[in-house]
Each structure stands twice: as structure tokens, then as C-alpha cells.
Design a protein around this nucleic acid. Structure first.
Lengths: 193, 193
DNA sequence: TTATTTTTGTAATGATTGATACATAAATAG
DNA sequence: CTATTTATGTATCAATCATTACAAAAATAA
């Protein structure tokens, strides 16, 4: 193939841009921030992403969706899917401080973009609903196997978990503390049993 | 008192600015947005608030803190404080769509400002902790009166409620729907009994 | 080699940002 | 009345915003 070789690959730019967006959100992240973080100048940046800042943000969100999809696949292979979900929540407690403060980029986007960008907002909401659906399905399956004592509708329990997820991502900014979070997570997961 | 009479009063500017900040957040709200919303030009605006945009935002947050304080006072006078808290959550379900989408300005601020402005962030976290403390205290009192079956530590239950509050304010953006929210709220409140 | 293609780096674009300068309006005090 | 004071409206500021223009760099194809 002809042409000057690519130094700043798409995937690498998205990865580094994601970190900045995750911390600062969409509006507060400037092109200058992204150029510093990725190393790419304006030339490379707009050559790679004709859609500019917004396209990179969408790609960063999309990458996060893929991470959730990976988990979904693991879940479908798991022998104890509900334990896998619970362990996912439990693992949050022992994150590093910076991870606590960052929260969830999808939940952050829902909060930030509601009155700013309809598409970005709707997309983030959609992803949260997919995660919720994943929770709900796992709970349904477990219930069919007779592994659940609770009589609560799996749909309600799925929404309970996505609500917890969003709440937890604010709680960990209030208390970026392993012990506090561990206690809260165990208490909330006890509802699903 | 001498001088041209004030047309744009402090309190009125803050009130109208709060609505914009609540919807769009701090970064995405421009001075131009605020001038349109309040009617005040740059002259009046900076004459009233020497600290500019940031000062108005702080005042808008402070006003919200006062609203929580008012609720706290009602709570201290109430004969069934826990029911008052529960009814507060229940009342959320029947908000108008716009209110659902706005969420909670304090929780929004925690999400938005973490890596943007240390002071605004810490202040918002502090307010959430005060609300949590209000929940915790009410639960403690109710427990002493023997009105609570659950053995769970009131401190954990207080944090459960503030976590729910933050999560609910994302859930209502996913489902700005009275019935969905009503079901979720009842399910989550059932834990406190 | 030369022509072609693609990426990169830099300079510049016009628009918008938050904030200031300042003259004028509109009141009261004396 | 005049002097003083305060609020307002407008023009303007420098800085930053996202984006574009474009020449040079660096590769391959012929």
C-alpha cells in the first residue's frame, strides 16, 4: 500500500481519548486535551476521524459497549452466571482511587448529555438498557433452575441492579474506600438470593 | 438608597440560572445561555456576581442545599419521619418528563465536576453526605422506637438510600415513566422496614 | 528515477468563550 | 437644581474553541 505510514492508529487514538473523555466528560474535553493525550496533531486527528471530536467520543463509547459484550459472552458460558455478576460488583470495591472517581463512562454520559446531544444520550441509555437486560436474563435463568429464593420479578431485579450500578458509581466518588464499598455492595447483592 | 434601581435581583438570577445549570451542567452552560435565561446583560451580571459564572453556579447549588435543609426541618417535626422519606422517593415517580431528565443537580455535579473543579466537586459530595446523614439519623431514631424489623446497621441503610437516590436519578432518564419508576421505588423501599 | 498516495505537522480559520471597560440611565442625597 | 451613586447595556477584550488548509514527509507503484 502506498502513502506515508500511519503512526497514530485509530484504535490507539480512541483508547487514549477514551481515558480523557471518561475523566472529563464530552463538553469539558477540548481538542487540545485529546491531542496532548494521543500525541496526534490536528492533521492526523482529522485525517483519521472526519467526524472530529464527536466521532471519537462515539468510538470511545462503542469500545466500552464491546467490553460489556465481552462480559456478556463470559456470562453465557458461565456455570454460575449470577455469581459472576455478583463478583463483578464485588470487584468494584477494590479498584484504585482514580477508577472510583472516574465512575462509569456510560452512566456519566447519560447524566451529562441529556440536554446537550440527543444521539449521544440515547446511545448511552441504550447501552445501559442492554446491560440491564443482561442482568434480567441471568436472573430469569437462575430462577428457572430454582436457584432463587426471592419471589420478586426478574425484570424488577434487573432494574434494581442497573439502578445500583448507576448509584454505586456516585457512591464510590463519595467514598473511594474499599471497606465502605465492600459493605454496601454485599448488602445490596443480598437482595438477589 | 442612592443609585439606579435594581431590575435583575440576585435571587432571581440565581433561580433562573439554576434551571439552566440543572439541565446542561456547568461546562456546557455559557454566559450567553445565562444571559438569555435571566435577561440580565453582561453589565448587570458581573456587577451582581463578581465571581462570574462559577459564583452563580455555587449559589445555585447552595439554593438546592437549602431545599434539602427545609426537608430536614420537616423531617424533624414529623411523627413518622421514615414515611416522609419514603413518600419523598415515591413522589419522584409522578414527576413531569422534564424533571426526570434533569435528575438531581447535586448528583449531576458530582458526576460532572470530579476532574474539572475540586471545590465544586467536594461541595456537592458534602451535600450528598448531609442528605445521607439525614437518612441515617431518621432510620436510627425509628429503630430506637422499635419500628424497624431489619437488623441491618442504620449507617448501611442510610448509604443504601443515598445510593438509591443517585441511581434513581439515572433510572428515571432511562425510563421517564411513572409506572416503571413506581414499581422500582416500592421494591427498593421495601428493604427499609 | 518519477509519479502517486497517504500521513503528518503547522499555521490559520472564524466562532465562541468568560470577562472587562466604559458611557449612559436612573435613582437619591444634599 | 447638582453631585453622587448604583445598575444597566453595549462594545470590546484576549483566550480558547473545533475545524480546515496546505505544504512537507514518507511510503509504494510503475
Amino acid at each position: 500500500m502506498r502513502g506515508r505510514p500511519t503512526v497514530y492508529e485509530d484504535a490507539n487514538i480512541v483508547k487514549k481519548a477514551q481515558e480523557v473523555f471518561w475523566q472529563k466528560g464530552y463538553s469539558a474535553t477540548s481538542l487540545s486535551d485529546l491531542q496532548k493525550a494521543t500525541g496526534a496533531g490536528a492533521g492526523s486527528f482529522y485525517n483519521t476521524f472526519k467526524g472530529g471530536k464527536k466521532e471519537v467520543f462515539q468510538k470511545a463509547i462503542e469500545e466500552r459497549r464491546l467490553a460489556f459484550d465481552t462480559f456478556k459472552t463470559e456470562l453465557s458460558k458461565s456455570e454460575s452466571p449470577l455469581e459472576l455478576i455478583k463478583d463483578f460488583f464485588r470487584s468494584i470495591a477494590s479498584s484504585e482511587e482514580n477508577e472510583h472517581l472516574k465512575g462509569c463512562i456510560i452512566a456519566n454520559t447519560v447524566v451529562e448529555m441529556t440536554f446537550i446531544d440527543e444521539n449521544l444520550e440515547a446511545n448511552a441509555v441504550q447501552i445501559l438498557k442492554e446491560v440491564e437486560q443482561m442482568f434480567t436474563q441471568a436472573i430469569k435463568n437462575e430462577k428457572l433452575k430454582g436457584n432463587l429464593k426471592t419471589q420478586t420479578d426478574p425484570e424488577i431485579l434487573g432494574r434494581y441492579l442497573i439502578t445500583f450500578w448507576c448509584g454505586l458509581n456516585t457512591l464510590r466518588r463519595m467514598y473511594p474506600d474499599k471497606n465502605v464499598l465492600k459493605n454496601q455492595i454485599e448488602m445490596q447483592l443480598a437482595v438477589i438470593s
